[in-house]
Nucleic acid binder design. Structure first.
Length: 568
RNA sequence: CGGAGCGUGGCGCAGUCUGGCAGCGCGCCUGCUUUGGGAGCAGGAGGUCGAAGGUUCAAAUCCUUUCGCUCCGACCA
């Protein structure tokens, strides 16, 4: 294998590309790992692809250990499969659709539940063949609303997805736990600082779900975790206990107030000098099952995922078109509007509050929950916030940022029922299979690793993911140096170490800076000082430590280092 | 989808208001010098100025259309 820099194509950039917003995006472009082809679509160059393969290798090893079998499903899916599961409509614009020459409709797979379920429903018919767990590493295409941050949110990306099929919930629980453990081992072996959190199942459907978050300040996800008991959940899912701390305000009685042009909670708080806890935030939603008025306290944020889960309606969205004569910006739960009301549980604890009067430019004071309106549904439909109390213990919730690199779900029978994936039990009776699904964003993991491990000079690869373990810098054109470098280069290769030899006739400054930028964990320098002293400088870029070693020690030292860092 | 902005050599940008030889820095090629933290000098290659149409003696620049890209928002009514 070529590992001489003079022959490799590693086009580094001195300047920061304008498009780069986050460290991983900037550094992947600058180190010549990736290049942008279109919005949210990237090519991998040799250096970048080496890292991708490292992640894939770790994933394959751990999943095979956990008993999963590798398959490869198609990129292009016929529309019928998605119509069968109902997701042809649910997916909306997220899915890229196209027609073949016969005008038959297809989509490019954003995920593979349908195709996987389709595959096994014809093949797996007996309880004797279950459970089974299949995985693949595949390119997914999702037409993101706004691709950004390079590989952290791209439209085309590599994902490992796995699907398991069971006869019992206990069997699913077992595989779910095995996958959970395999994921922990995968991210540990990648050298990443991660956390497992409870998660919302979102549009995938199902019951239990956990996300694997790589911790990084630039992460797009917020995690709430308890400082006492270790409870951790995505903010989309997290529950909390809330104690009312504000001043009690007496109910002023029912009274209409003139509030011209005041359509936001923020404006209303100012105009009335009332805290958000005394305001009703009333939102009009439309879904498959009709229109709803969703109510949360003015101080809270509605969580659409929780709302959809509560109503069992996955297609809910804000009804911007309005409803009847109800004036947007002045909605309230009270009165005869004929809409079903969904109230957050904290709303029901309010003594009274101000709501829109359901007529332009007016609000009403003194609206009492349970008296002036009766919700058809109540539940937790608000976002929990840091500082609130843990549901499990007396601890307080704190917020950290994370990047979602893995997600596991207990799907249940959603797809098997919709698509008729049934098996026959001991008595010859037919039942839908119980399913689980398990994803890891491969390319996102690469980006997340950089997001978590970098400094002002460049990337700092954890050894297991590093494209090369060692970079050897030969400074100057001295013949003896070249020969010694060649010997060391050969020696390292024979030992199985991936060594990048910077044998280019570049100036030392260029080599040092590029070595720092590329972030290879160990840097060996062979220059003037070596000729004078016979000692080699080994810099540990990851831990930022320098070592001066005798020529004969180097190979052993590196072997031990690799073992210590989990690479053999 | 709403708002804002940007498309000029591989990358970063100036030039556009006020029409008149297409420029600068980095990178790239050649030569000489230099060689322990992104070198110096000299010479050179590389552009249908996003695309189409129009105005004009003359368009990167003005007008029209269109495509692409980036940022903010798109659930707090």
């Amino acid at each position: 294998m070529i590992m001489k820099m003079s022959q490799l194509y590693i086009p580094t950039l001195k300047e920061k590309p304008v498009e780069a917003e986050t460290p991983s995006h900037e550094l992947m472009l600058r180190t010549g790992m990736i290049r942008r082809v279109a919005a949210g679509i990237y090519s991998f160059l040799p250096l970048g692809y080496k890292v991708v393969r490292k992640v894939e290798k770790i994933i394959r090893e751990e999943l095979e250990k956990a008993g999963a079998q590798e398959v490869h499903l198609p990129l292009l899916h016929p529309a019928e499969l998605w119509q069968e599961s109902g997701r042809w409509a649910e997916m909306g614009d997220m899915m890229i659709r196209l027609c073949d020459r016969k005008k038959r409709e297809f989509c490019i797979g954003p995920t593979h539940e349908e195709v996987m379920t389709d595959l096994i429903r014809y093949e797996l018919k007996s309880y004797k063949n279950l459970p089974q767990n299949f995985y693949q590493i595949q390119t997914k295409v999702r037409d993101e609303l706004r691709p950004r941050f390079g590989l952290l949110r791209s439209r085309e990306f590599s994902m490992k997805d796995a699907y398991s099929f069971h006869t019992t919930w206990e069997s699913l629980d077992q595989t779910y736990q095995d996958m959970h453990d395999a994921y922990c081992e995968i991210f540990r072996r990648c050298g990443l600082n991660y956390r497992v959190v409870e998660a919302d199942t979102g549009p995938m459907g199902g019951t239990d779900s956990h996300e694997f978050m790589v911790l990084a300040d630039t992460g797009e996800d917020s995690v709430l975790f308890c400082n006492l008991c270790g409870y951790a959940a995505n903010i989309e899912k997290a529950g909390s206990r809330v104690e009312f701390k504000g001043e009690k305000i007496d109910n002023p009685g029912k009274e209409e107030i003139y509030t011209p042009g005041i359509t936001t909670i923020e404006q209303l708080e100012k105009a009335l000098e009332l805290p958000g806890e005394y305001l009703y935030k009333t939102l009009l939603y439309r879904g498959e099952s009709g229109y709803y008025l969703a109510i949360v306290r003015g101080s809270d944020q509605l969580n659409e995922n929780k709302l959809m889960a509560l109503l069992g309606d996955p297609l809910l969205h804000l009804a911007e078109e309005g409803y009847g004569n109800l004036p947007a910006g002045f909605l309230g739960p009270q009165g005869e509007h004929g809409l079903k009301i969904v109230a957050d549980e904290l709303v029901m604890n309010m003594d009274w509050g101000v709501a829109g009067a359901n007529r332009e430019d007016y609000h009403v004071k003194g609206i009492v929950p349970g008296t002036d309106f009766t919700p058809a549904f109540t539940g937790n439909i608000r976002n929990a916030r840091p500082g609130e109390k843990c549901l499990e213990c007396d601890g307080k919730l704190e917020e950290i940022r994370g990047i979602e690199v893995g997600h596991i779900f207990k799907l249940g029978k959603k797809y098997s029922e919709a698509m008729g994936a049934n098996y026959l039990d001991e008595n010859g009776h037919s039942h839908p299979m119980i399913m689980g699904c398990y994803g890891i964003g491969v390319t996102r993991t690469v980006a997340a690793a950089i997001e978590q491990n970098h400094d002002n000079y460049g990337v700092k690869w954890p050894l297991p993911l590093a494209p090369y373990q060692v970079v050897l810098l030969t400074l100057g054109g001295d013949q003896a140096l070249k020969e010694e470098s060649e010997k060391l280069y050969q020696g390292l290769q024979e030992m199985g170490v991936e060594v990048l030899w910077d044998d280019r006739p570049e100036r030392p400054g260029v080599k040092f800076n590029e070595a720092d930028l590329l972030g290879i964990p160990l840097r060996i320098t062979m220059g003037k000082k070596f000729l004078e002293s016979g000692k080699l400088e080994v810099k540990d870029r990851f831990h930022d430590q320098d070592h001066l070693l005798g020529q004969e020690q180097v190979l052993d030292w590196i072997r031990n280092y690799c073992i210590k860092e989990g690479v053999s």
